[in-house]
Design a protein around this nucleic acid. Structure first.
Lengths: 189, 189
DNA sequence: GTCTATAGGTGGATAGAC
DNA sequence: GTCTATCCACCTATAGAC
């Protein structure tokens, strides 16, 4: 990848992370890079391509968070770390979380959006399945349990990001911990 | 309220419900009413006032859905109907649901947004409390249980509205029913 | 109350000089 | 590769005629 292209993508990503997709315009990106807007068209076909690459990078970043959870030694530790990784991503990159999981529109340009939600779901199904097989979770359909868990953590996170709770980040981390604990107590054998 | 003002609000509401806040422009509203954009300024100070009234009407509409749940005869029936009302509102007015519960920004003009989320939460706390007192739910902190339930149903609904599940509305209604059933089995005495 | 005309802003994108 | 100049589309909002 060319030097210039990378600098443009970095600028676009910084704008996106601090202000969402709406903050990314050809003019704002160009200003941040220190060139004029027209110069960007030497490196990207159009705005859709630029924004699409920013968002695809975000998907890969989320995948990285989840992947780290696989370092856990046991099934239940991997599941627990997955929940923690999910929370970390949401709190560290809220605008990206919004784009991937809370918005319908802004991923027009981007091909990887639905696949990414699929992948998230399948990753979670795998974590649940191994927990059930190993006896850490009650016998049940892994898909149903996975959706049950995902809906719950996504609901918590998105209520927080929307400002429903009026909690600080620290308070919310504690709320999240307790709520997930309660969730698993209802799913245990 | 003047005749003209009502017709303008109706047009704005229709545009909002089908295309979200972004679909409401002074031009689009005016065209729908059959006048020019400038005419609207005789009836509304500016766009913020117009959009704000549309959204406030949406809040009141949501309140109406919940209120109907109070017709249930027993605490558990009122709680169960509340969950159904929540689902009905989300599926019948998805754009309004998004604006109230899934977006940070677009309620700038509108004063009633955070209060409305507060009210939703308190309504649910009341439903939970009477279920606990009556023995239909396990002894616990009503606030914690209410958040637990809200996060769950909100998570289900918003994953569906975001397109995560790829389900049809009928399939999702069934998923919702089963997931809520599972939720309460974990909260029962 | 509604119109036409118009000001002023933001955004995406292209042509052609350098 | 980057610039200037420019076009086009779309938006909010105001002034003043009717």
């Amino acid at each position: 990848m060319s030097e210039a292209r990378t600098r443009i993508l970095d600028a676009a990503r910084a704008l996106f992370l601090s202000g969402g997709a709406g903050a990314v315009t050809m003019r704002s990106v160009a200003e941040r890079v220190g060139v004029t807007a027209t110069a960007l068209y030497r490196h990207f076909e159009n705005k859709d391509e630029l924004l699409g690459e920013v968002i695809n990078a975000g998907f890969r970043g989320f995948g990285g968070y989840l992947y780290r959870a696989l370092q856990g030694a046991t099934p239940q530790e991997r599941l627990q770390r997955s929940g923690q990784a999910y929370l970390d991503f949401a709190l560290e990159q809220p605008e990206m979380y919004r784009t991937i999981f809370m918005s319908t529109r802004p991923a027009e340009a981007c091909t990887a959006r639905e696949p990414s939600m699929d992948a998230t779901f399948r990753f979670l199904v795998d974590r649940v399945r191994e927990c059930i097989q190993q006896g850490a979770l009650r016998q049940d359909e892994p898909e149903d349990v996975a959706l049950f868990i995902w809906a719950h953590v996504h609901g918590l996170v998105s209520l927080y990001l929307t400002g429903a709770s009026g909690q600080t980040e620290q308070e919310f981390r504690e709320t999240y911990r307790r709520s997930v604990e309660r969730l698993f107590s209802g799913l245990s054998p």
